[in-house]
């Protein structure tokens, strides 16, 4: 039963993340969606490590995911701030106007 709950949770988190990625064009909100999506993926990797008996490898990969996830958030927020400063908007389209 616990496995089913976890699998439902993973699918739910990834579904929420993908849905939000599809409907939003605001850069900070896209980062929130990515964070939710990555949390689902991280739980999936730890679950996979647990059922395959390779927990050390799964934990090592989860650590890399946490670092990469944080850096994605930092760089995305930095881009949003720069876009806001230069174009007055933090929408995704404004990034393409940064070079002008």
């Amino acid at each position: 039963m616990i496995s089913k709950i976890i699998i439902f949770g993973i699918v739910g988190l990834m579904g929420i993340g993908i849905y939000c990625l599809m409907i939003t064009r605001n850069l900070p909100k896209v980062i929130v969606a990515l964070q939710v999506l990555i949390k689902g993926a991280m739980i999936a990797i730890i679950y996979a490590g647990d059922i395959s008996g390779n927990m050390d490898l799964a934990q090592s990969m989860a650590l890399t995911i946490i670092v990469a996830d944080t850096i994605v958030a930092v760089i995305g927020l930095a881009l949003a701030i720069q876009a806001r400063e230069k174009t007055g908007s933090s929408k995704i389209q404004s990034i393409s106007n940064l070079k002008k």
């Binding site: 616990i2 496995s3 089913k4 976890i6 699998i7 679950y47 647990d50 059922i51 008996g53 927990m55 050390d56 490898l57 934990q59 090592s60 650590l63």
Partner: peptide, 15 residues
């Protein structure tokens, strides 16, 4: 769906 074992991981430092 495979069953969760929830085994405590050993020291991951070596890995």
């Amino acid at each position: 769906i495979p069953q969760l074992k929830a085994v405590q991981a050993e020291l991951i430092a070596d890995t």
